[in-house]
Structures are given as C-alpha cells and as structure tokens.
Design a protein around this nucleic acid. Structure first.
Lengths: 246, 246
DNA sequence: CGCGATTTGTGCACGCCTTCACAAGCGCCT
DNA sequence: AGGCGCTTGTGAAGGCGTGCACAAATCGCG
C-alpha cells in the first residue's frame, strides 16, 4: 500500500498551521472523495450525506466519516456535509490550492500520452517542461511545449518552480533520471518505469506499473478458472459491488 | 490496497490443484519479485538469497520470505532460492504460463500509448483487439491492429478468447463500456477512467488513476513545505531508502 | 418550545499485515 | 565424519486499518 516511508518528525508539537497527521490510507482516498464532490457540485448539490458521498466514491460510509473526521469536523449532524466547504478543505489539505508545476522526463510512447492527458490540468497540475535524452526528440514541439535535453533539467526546475517529476523513460534510464531530479531539488517523483528507485530520505516516490496491474488481474483469472471445476460453483450474490480506489 | 472484494468460496476444500489462498498484499508483490528475478536470471544468477532478492524488489527480506513461504517451500536453507524454479512458480501462480488476450477500449490519447506499450507483450499479455465508439477512429490501423467499433466487442471476446478488458475512455463512457465487457464475458477489468465502476460479483476491477497519484504526491509536498518552518528540520538519515512496489 | 427523525463523530473489537527473533536445516571445509 | 556458518521458514507480537454500533448533535415541525 504505502509506497514510501520517510523520516517521521518527532518534535513536531506546535507547528505553524497544525498540519493534521493523516493515515496514509486516508490520504489515498481523499482524491477520490474530491472527484465525487466535484461531480456533486456540478450536479447542483449543496450538501451531501456520508452515505451519499460514500456511494459516489465507492467506499463504506463509516470509513468515509472516519476519514473526514481526521481533517476536522466539517459536517453538520442531521444534515450532512457542505459540498463547497468540503471541496475547499480537501483541496487545501492536498495542497491543490497552488497549481503545482510538473516536469515530465521521457517523451516516448507513454510520455506522449501523459503530456497530452487532460486529467492533469483539470485537477490543478501543469506540466511545464518536457525532457528527453534522445537527440531526435529534443527540440520537437509537443502540446505547446518544446522537448528539452535532460541536461537543462536543473535550470528548469529552479526557473519554473517544479516540485514534482514524472519519469516515463525505459527502466534502464530511470534511476539516473531520478538522481538528476533529486539533485535538481525535486522532492516528489511519479515513476512509470518498471524498476525500483533508490532515493534519499525526504523524497517521495510513487510508482505506477501498468503490467503489474494486469498480472494481478491475471492471477484472479487463474484463480477463478481453477474454481470452475467445483460443481456448486460461486454463489453469485445479487447485490452489485463496486470497485474502490487505488 | 485491495481493489475489489469478491465472494469468498466457503466450501472449497479439496479443489483440483489445491490453489493456494494467498493474501492480497502478497499477490500485489509477486509481479515485483518476478521482475527482479528476471533481471537476476539475465545477469546469470543461479540462486539468490532472500536478502538479495528483497533488495532487488525493494522490500523487507522477512516480508519476502513470508510471501514466498505462502506458495510453498522453494528455497534451500543455507543457499537461497533457485532463480529459474522460482520464476516458474510465480509465473504459474499468476497464470502467466498462458498468454492472456486483452481487449483495449478507447483509443484516445492514453489508449494510443497503451496499445503501443512494450511492457505488456514482454510480460505475457497480448492486446488482440482495439475498440472505440468514435467513427473517426474506427477502421484506422494502430500497431498492427485495426480499431473496431465497440458493437463488435461481444463477438471479438468469444473469437479471440479475451479475458481481460482495459478501459481507456473518458469517465462518462466508462460504465457503459464496463457493462459491455461484462456482458461479453470478460471477468477482469483494468480501468484508467477516473470514475467508480459498478460490476457484478465475480468480476475483478483494478483502477489506475494518474491524477490521483499526483494528488497524493501533492499532499506530501504540502506537508513537507509546512515543516520547513521548524528550525531543527528533518534529520536526513544517510542510509538511502528505496521505493516499494504498488 | 419540545419532540422525533436524521446524520455525524467515535469508542471498540476484529482481522490483516508487517516485523522481529530464532529454531531448523543445508552445505562446505577441515 | 563432524562442526561451523549461512539461510530459510515460522511463531509471536505489535501496529494499522476497517467496520459495527451507538451516543451526541442538529434541524424541522407541530
């Protein structure tokens, strides 16, 4: 589940804005809640009950209430949660009030798609620089930006205020790119390359491996197939069942 | 963590190949071990210790041993694990011995990249059919395949033996596509659309939301930024620290 | 103004997962 | 053949997360 542990800060009493100490599992669900809330806001809802929001986000209502309780009491008993207020709260916690500048390294097959992915911009992220080491790709325009050579990364990070780096290179190049990103001052990395990255403490790494997801599904296919031999078979319970967030 | 619960099979004693009942957390790590093992095999290693394999996979060695112990004892005390044997075992468990046919629905920005992603083929998955509902896209060639209209999905699933469907459509179309996939007989779905899917019991759904990953990183950026006010600051411990699998 | 319907916030128990620590087992060297 | 070092496999403990069930709180209505 947790993708990275970093040093805890023991003597943290009396920090400036009293940043809440959220469980990692809760953090991972907040974006899901946020998306559901935006949908509700667009649909014109002023308030929403924990039951309703939980259904929209695909989770248990008790879990949702406990998650929200961690970031303060922003609900009204007997009524529910104020949609607009909760959106502001979650966006603040997630640090989405300031649009974050993102650097994308590796403009190959996957990088191309990521550079053009609408979902980033619509949720507060701006890809402000593209990098590659292939001379054939450097200098080419892509989605309003020009692909730059990776040597310029250090300067770009400072000039553009980049805090997040996305690695979409082949596995062999990923560690070197990660080192470059860290050296440039980036402290959060999203890694699409199928490999383990080693980074110093204080740097957060999240990994997305598309093939691993398929392999997990393959396991369940294998498991299901090995159960078809049983005559009684699976008791298909009628209640439909929803997928939950990552 | 767990992306989908499905009905447990209570009266399962005496199943045919005695399919092991692996913890979900273990399953999610097996692909990571497998990748590390393939790297070791290419490097010429015959055996590997739990310590070595754990380092290569980015996990704790005790966790690795416990994971592997769940699928039987394939190690030798004092020596380690036989790399080739372990690869075979994990590939069998994951059902990778038979190459799985995958259907990809939605050939937009992201779909294009997925269709051409090398990592799928190299790990035992074949994308055998592409679908879209946009008339402009249907009929166009892409990576050796022709994009077909989504109405043909049912026939294609049967003809090609498709067991896994990948959804790379906009959020608005995803539920309808999922319904189509389920109706066609697909029992595993990988969803890239930012929405909650509702599927009947027995169908596995995994979700990958690229924006959510960035939002989680954004939270950590926000948290780290709120700690810089403290003079003592973070005690950067020297030991480098590695990112772990999804 | 009081009562009931409704919904939040949370104490508690349970289960899963992780981690430690060590006994059991294997091979190698003398 | 025997002992020694190394590594696996696992019992036990601790921590984290989930879900239940209920008390507390708020609104609306008579």
């Amino acid at each position: 589940m947790s993708q990275q542990r970093h040093g805890s800060t023991p003597g943290n009493t009396g920090a400036v804005p009293a940043f809440p100490d959220l469980p990692e599992a809760t953090i991972a669900r907040l974006p899901e809640y946020l998306r559901a809330l935006h949908n509700l806001a667009e649909a014109g809802s002023e308030t929403v009950s924990s039951e309703g929001l939980a259904a929209a986000a695909g989770v248990n209502s008790a879990k949702l209430r406990k998650d929200l309780s961690h970031l303060g009491s922003y609900g009204t008993r007997g009524v529910g949660y104020d949609v607009a207020l909760l959106i502001d709260q979650i966006e603040y916690i997630l640090g989405l009030d300031q649009r974050r500048a993102v650097a994308l390294v590796g403009v190959g097959n996957l990088g191309h798609a990521l550079a053009g992915y609408d979902g980033f911009a619509s949720r507060g992220f701006r890809i402000v620089a593209l990098f590659d080491s292939d001379a054939d790709r450097v200098g080419k325009p892509l989605n309003g930006l020009t692909v730059r050579h990776i040597d310029e990364l250090g300067r770009a990070v400072v000039e553009e205020g980049i805090t997040i780096g996305v690695i979409a290179t082949p596995a062999g190049a990923a560690q070197a790119v990660a080192d470059d990103l860290v050296a440039a001052g980036v402290t959060s990395i999203l890694n699409f390359a199928p490999c383990v990255l080693s980074v110093p403490a204080g740097v957060d790494v999240r990994k997305v491996d598309l093939a691993i997801e398929l392999q997990i599904l393959s396991f369940h296919e294998h498991r299901k197939a090995s159960l078809t031999a049983i005559p009684g078979g699976r008791s298909a319970q009628p209640g439909n069942q929803e997928a939950v967030g990552s």
